[in-house]
Nucleic acid binder design. Sequence first.
DNA 1: ATCGGCTCGCGCAA
DNA 2: TGCGCGAAGCCGAT
Length: 476
Amino acid sequence: MVNQRIRVLNSAPERQDRDYVLYWCGANRRVDANHGLLRAVELANLWGLPVLVYEGVTSAHPHASDRLHTFLLEGVPETARRLKRLGIGYCFHLQRERDSHDDTFFRVAARAACVVADDYPTYYPALLNATVPAKLDVRYEVVDSSCIVPMNLLAKREYAAYTIRPKIHRLLPQFLEPCPEPRVRRRWEGPPPPFHLEFTEEQIPAIVASCEIDHSVPPSLCFRGGRRAAEARLQHFLEHGLRRYAKERNQPAAHATSRLSPYLHFGMISSLEVALAVRDYAREHRLIADEFLEELIVRRELAFNFARHSENPESLLNLPEWARATLLRHAKDPRSPCYSRARFEQADTHDELWNACQREMLLRGVIHGYYRMYWGKKIIEWSPTCQDALETMIRIHDRWALDGRDPNTYTNILWCFGLHDRPWQERPVFGTVRYMSLDGMKRKTNVEAYLREIEWIGRAGQDPFVSLTGQPCASL
DNA sequence: ATCGGCTCGCGCAA
DNA sequence: TGCGCGAAGCCGAT
């Protein structure tokens, strides 16, 4: 079953005379339900070797910030505990300098019999998978533990949700199965590698402060990183959100959505675990979970399919021909009002709902899924060009979002330009690309409740509306 | 409140 | 070749 998740990305041999099998968790920062880790353990058991997990956090990429570093570091002590329990070695490396050349991974890999990494189609993991394997003298495999139905099984780029849906549903019974717990034959003995950084949760603020990163992006007001926080969010959603999801998912102030996207993005929890938990809870409590599972599986995996099969997922060239043509025909339409990227980033427009969406991004590090569509459509409407609008959306996600740089990010942004969508009535700027209006938001959602909530958390500097503990939340 | 038109193209049935 | 229908809609007519 694991085999269909694997790709080998270089032609170097395995080297069984070396010290361990290395699992590099670049995208899936978890111990549970991780097919990559499972594969590493399988190979290690075959060769009688122990397993070492390498996890890195670098300050060398342009969007490194207190927000992202804190979220990532918050997961590390729990990862260390769980690996120790399983008898697996752990090397967590933090590169604090922005500019220095960091070869820690290569030094760890030099003693590995084989390197197993995550198959992930965007941003850093994708870049490293494209460049690192050729520099190694051992076999380098990547494993897809992000999708439930392995990306490898869908050979071409799908046109829309309706074309991928039957394929996903046909393959799903085969893959919607719990991932077994890894059992090592040979435990990791002795100390961790010399580069390993060990710390407690209390030390995190001081460690983050010591890094050469963007300190003007503070930690999220409501998301704590790590496995236990992810499990608490899931439990909270099962008990308080799932039964309301179908009716209230587009009602941001109702908090009926899972808010799991930061954890899914960093792989702190897997969509497979979420899907199984939701399915089982729904069975036990006689709920219908179809709408949630549609979004978690079909639409999320459509996004991975898109990222996997596009050369550059950040480009408008990916749009369907009808969308490119219609946007081009309207490229010279006047934009009024028209804002600079800085005005957008500072939540400084004439539209109070739009500003609140942007403030949610600044404070929480996410925007509610439905309002994010509105947020994106308005950036198109009020930017000088489509390319400017695209770059504004990506840039704001890169800098502020905990769920940015994800296949879903790029797909949702390009959806605003017509990707995976169909044409509608023609109008200025958008042509036949779907338009969204403030009146529509007011008609269909409780805009006032959302404005009050965002205003409240901005003023109070805390967010009791999104549960960190699994307990019910405040409401206004 | 509800309905139809807007408008393109994929995939399937025939 | 024809036809149904689609990731979150808008607008104007009734």
